[in-house]
């Protein structure tokens, strides 16, 4: 089986005034379907550029990028939009939900651009929200939801069109540690169900939960290692138990 993501000698140059900046230099990397990968690196390492190219938001200056067996590095803007719509689900640090729409309508957006019919759209959007545990919040607006819930709506939006890969860019950047843990548990659960997950992060605490960690520096891959991932759900349960114990102790003391 061909790998889901396959880049060969991927290079991306930017012009900054008279200077040429090399954001990516000859990056060759493959990700198979079903993997859970964390992409790490300090800022300026090229990890965001890599993410943009893999997410079909940007095109490489040279090199090849095959997504799901299709060469996408030379597609025009409209074809790239279609690829993003059908094969990629984005989760952003800032959620990027539309405040004037309720959760259901937000999740529905990718289906609108996919040209799905109205009734099917609403059913699939509701199904995606149930999948991330927000079946009882369909008609809440983003401003009526907590940060963790908003990010779950964003995950549902990323999942709704059945993408090949979930691309998350610093997804826990705006969340507290417990909510981050919950989100990682959700990602691990989705990964077990067969969703390929690629997370870009600079937090080692988040990368622990990935089965593979790719480190970038100066536009190149510094290391690429597989690891035994930590179990987010188990840590969450432990955390809850600890808290319950502490609460009980506090009650007893009182």
């Amino acid at each position: 089986m061909a790998p889901l993501i396959e880049t060969q000698k991927l290079t991306r140059l930017y012009r900054l005034g008279d200077e040429t900046v090399t954001a990516l230099a000859d990056v060759s990397l493959t990700v198979d379907a079903g993997e859970f990968v964390a992409v790490m690196g300090p800022s300026g390492s090229g990890k965001s550029t890599f993410m943009n190219v893999v997410g079909c938001l940007d095109r490489p200056t040279s090199g090849s990028y095959r997504l799901d067996g299709e060469e996408v590095s030379r597609l025009d803007a409209d074809r790239l939009a279609a690829v993003r719509n059908r094969k990629i689900g984005f989760v952003f640090q800032q959620f990027h939900l539309l405040d004037r729409l309720d959760a259901l309508s937000n999740v529905e957006l990718p289906l609108i651009y996919a040209g799905a019919d109205r009734r099917g759209r609403r059913e699939r959007a509701a199904e995606a929200l149930r999948r991330v545990g927000l079946g009882d919040r369909l008609h809440h607006r983003p401003t009526q939801l907590s940060g963790g819930q908003q990010q779950r709506v964003a995950v549902a939006r990323a999942l709704v069109n059945g993408p090949k890969v979930l691309l998350a860019d610093e997804p826990t950047g705006a969340l507290d540690s417990r909510t981050s843990l919950e989100l990682m548990a959700l990602f691990q659960e989705l990964n077990r169900e067969g969703v390929t997950v690629v997370i870009v992060t600079h937090e080692p605490d988040v990368a622990r939960f990935a089965a593979r960690v790719v480190r970038f520096r100066d536009g190149c891959v510094l290391s690429d290692a597989r690891q035994r991932p930590a179990d987010a759900a188990a840590e969450l349960a432990a955390l809850s138990a600890e808290k319950a114990e502490a609460d009980a102790a506090a009650e007893a003391a009182a």
């Binding site: 993003r84 990027h96 939006r157």
Partner: peptide, 16 residues
């Protein structure tokens, strides 16, 4: 602008 960016990211074409 951010809304436009999001719409483009989730598959809106320029003409949309």
């Amino acid at each position: 602008t951010r809304e436009i960016g999001l719409r483009l990211a989730i598959g809106a074409r320029q003409r949309d």
